[in-house]
Design a protein around this nucleic acid. Structure first.
Lengths: 255, 255
DNA sequence: CGCGACTTTGACAGATGTCAAGGCTTGTGG
DNA sequence: CCACAAGCCTTGACATCTGTCAAAGTCGCG
């Protein structure tokens, strides 16, 4: 329950994209937070709710869920440890979608007013938060393209590529293998497909030996091949991060 | 070519969501800008480009375009007068998508460094810009849901509802009629459909007397009916805007 | 008047969805 | 250690929505 380590994870994510002074960084690390546990498939923020905390994912996986009248769900974004799921709520405290834990997860709740406070005291920090929200938006835009104009296999491949890069960023050691605690229904909700069709399309990717996915663990067998099918281009994620060049070459080398 | 009026349009948009002092507002109005004309179907920012200006739409319509390897296009967002199309580029100067004029449009180019400058001098302004980017992201998230989990008619209806509210916001007088200078191919690119299918689905909406759409002019004949098909909820757009309540009731009243 | 861009329509094809059943894991309790 | 239940994955047969291709109709403009 010590809030320090989770905030460091968050800080690492932030400084990967923004230049901050010692003082700026200390301000972020000094943010108070209350850790809570959320069980799988439980909403912890509801649609339309007025929120007063931002939620940092410490452990687990969180999705933003939209919904149809017929009950069809669409996951609008996925958040891994170190992500502030709804940093945007600091400036727009009205939840435009429900937040649900995909697997059992630990969340650190950080009061908006504290975040606003350090933001106004440290303009660099505010800029960094702004930037973080922008990257989030860029990911959403990519998802629109993914869901709108790619076939089932490409959609899945793209999602896997994105998550591979994002997980890799928070845990360099894992490389092209990562824990991804979702079931095929979640994949369907991310890609705008049905679970049955996800099953078949994922099966095709497996048969092509591009990826293996057994019980919540993804292993990318052929990075180049998967990127090719997905038409994946890291740029939208990697923005302003010098790491990405390395990533790319590392992946290439391995593939 | 006088940059004052366009910036006022932008300012109006900003203050609709954020509280700014006189000084803050003056800072925004004092932003320098260079107006350029862009012909229909012309890119003015290319994918991957490093940009140094942000682009304010003065007149016309702009889309963010993503693309497939087969050349299928997906419009990721649409921007009307008063929108700063790529305010996000101020903090992430790498263009994640091409920007293209949908119709002949005039753009005001504003240097990033000037925007950053006033942002750091006026934290309220930075917060307002941050907020604006967040709303943009919320729209993208809605589009993911739209394209991922709605059928053709609902997708179109949703797009029309969204644009109606957004146009209404910049020009109260027009109400449920607005100029929307797109062709059916653009609608297809927004909704992830084909032009042919847009034609048929739009035809169905027309036959149901929900909307009429002749040569670049949209008239919503049955707001309530359209909202119903679209499953449209203004909240994600209207955020923090007290106007919205009025809007809603006004539309209801008219429908 | 005639060209070009856009819209509309038809016939047919293909991708994805639906429904339903069976098999596999995993975890739990006896 | 076995048996069972619950959730998840896999598969098949068939339905439906949306896409494709192609042609004709409409509209605005030079």
């Amino acid at each position: 329950m010590n809030p320090r380590p989770p905030l460091e994870l968050f800080l690492r994510r932030i400084v990967a994209r923004s230049l901050l002074t010692e003082a700026d960084q200390d301000a972020i690390l000094s943010l108070p937070g209350k850790a809570i546990e959320v069980r799988a498939n439980r909403d912890f923020v509801r649609l339309g709710e007025h929120v007063t905390n931002a939620c940092l994912v410490v452990e687990g996986l969180v999705g933003r869920f939209g919904q149809n009248k017929d009950g069809a769900r669409q996951i609008t974004s996925l958040h891994i440890p170190g992500d502030m799921v709804d940093l945007h709520s600091v400036v727009v405290p009205h939840a435009p979608a429900a937040l649900q834990a995909v697997t059992n997860t630990t969340i650190l709740q950080i009061p908006h007013d504290k975040i606003l406070d350090i933001s106004h005291r440290h303009p660099n920090v505010m800029e960094a938060f702004w930037r973080d929200c922008v990257v989030d938006g860029a990911i959403s835009a990519q998802w629109v393209l993914n869901v709108g104009r790619r076939n089932a296999q490409a959609r899945l491949a793209h999602l896997l590529c994105e998550m591979a890069v994002r997980y890799d960023k928070i845990d360099r050691a894992r490389g092209l293998t990562f824990d991804f605690p979702v079931n095929q229904t979640h994949l369907a909700d991310c890609t705008g497909l049905t679970p049955v069709h996800v099953n078949r399309s994922l099966g095709a990717l497996k048969r092509a030996e591009l990826v293996s996915m057994t019980q919540k663990k993804v292993e990318i067998l052929d990075w180049k091949g998967l990127v090719d099918i997905a038409e994946f281009d890291t740029a939208y994620l990697a923005i302003a991060s010098p790491l990405e060049a390395h990533e790319e070459s590392k992946h290439e080398a391995r593939a």
